[in-house]
Design a binder for these strands. Structure first.
Lengths: 203, 203
DNA sequence: ATAGTTACTGACCAAAGAGTCAGTAAAGGC
DNA sequence: GCCTTTACTGACTCTTTGGTCAGTAACTAT
């Protein structure tokens, strides 16, 4: 029987492993009800090690919440800027499919955490506003404007369109966060809305 | 100097006073971060008294969350059933004005609490689904159907209309829960949506 | 091998907070 | 006034948990 070492030193990977475990724990139990000890167990390390990489529970929380969403939004914005589809085709294609994915993705969890913990972490809220919301809305707005310039869309009535595109997605997210099991065809909801908005936008 | 009694016995009023204080505390801090001692202080009573009227913290929480919303929804449903306005006039009038009020009302707080604590209190979620969501959606659906019977609305495409009416309200609620200060004209958002939906519904 | 470095462990501490209960005093009946 | 009832208080207990740190053992260099 080979003597198995009690643990391996894996300086490089630990922080991410702990962050992943923490995300799962926060997702299940929320911030306050999550025990650091529990996070450590999930990550397969001791509590002490968690404190080596993250100074406090709050630090861990913030670090975790920040790194979940940004790269997804980056990807979407990249798509928007590089696509050669017509505006309508892009909206019906990649944008709609992105919106359909969100309610079942970690983004939804982050929204739950922002709703429950946001008020006690204003800097986290600011971070999300700047890096996710503002950029996301900006991208959609730019995209509608491009449609206008190309003569695909009418100029008027685009005041609040970006938000209206997102509204059924938001409803779907919340619905699933609260009533996970109760059926609601959220995909169809978003499709109807997109249809409706495009009809109104079309030149 | 009259000797002031240390306290008054007010058996009738205490439960409600404690519940109100608890709602305020839960709204500010969430469930886990709320101290019973704090609730008691807000209500101007001792911690012990809280436990006389509510067996546990969880009992208190559930009692509080249940009694905030139901009577408002009752009122709305009462309106729906007794109005003599045309369907469109009712939607543009009382329904829209109800939806505008919600994001700044205690209902929004309840939604926050359901999102953060719902998973750990499934019976509370069920209660809300039955008493608020199902009844609310039912009322709107009935109302659209009435419009159809009267020849005001087209029959088709009313599949998911009730949810679409509510979607921008949901977005507004969440927006204000997270980004309280950041401006967004949520009223106008809901008006645009109602316009759009009515245009589509109109016979 | 052996010594040195440090990633990692786990027992520990101190604070906080849910829930209890013996005792107090306010109201009401006589 | 006095007695009884019970709404109410507040000090106490016991558990939980965030955070610390002295010690251990996995790797590295020589």
């Amino acid at each position: 029987m080979p003597d198995q070492p009690k643990y391996q030193r894996r300086k490089e990977d630990r922080p991410q492993e702990i962050a992943d475990a923490a995300f799962a724990a926060f997702a299940e139990n929320g911030y306050a009800a999550t025990r650091i000890d529990d996070v450590a167990k999930r990550a397969g390390v001791s509590k002490g090690l968690t404190y080596l990489y993250y100074k406090t529970k709050e630090d861990l929380f913030k670090a975790v919440v920040k790194n979940v969403v940004v790269r997804r939004v980056d990807a979407l914005i990249g798509d928007v800027e590089s696509t050669d589809l017509s505006s309508e085709a892009f909206i019906r294609g990649p944008l709609l499919s992105f919106m359909k994915k969100v309610p079942g993705s970690p983004i939804a969890i982050v929204i739950r955490l922002l709703i429950s913990e946001g008020p006690r972490h204003p800097d986290l809220v600011d971070y999300y506003y700047e890096n996710v919301v503002a950029r996301g809305l900006g991208a959609i707005t730019k995209f509608i404007e491009r449609g206008v310039e190309r003569g695909e869309f009418r100029r008027e009535a685009l005041e609040h369109q970006p938000h209206l595109f997102l509204a059924p997605m938001m409803l779907s997210i919340i619905w699933r966060l609260i009533f996970a099991e109760k059926q609601l065809n959220t995909d169809q909801l978003m499709e109807s809305q997109v249809d409706m908005l495009l009809t109104q936008l079309r030149a």
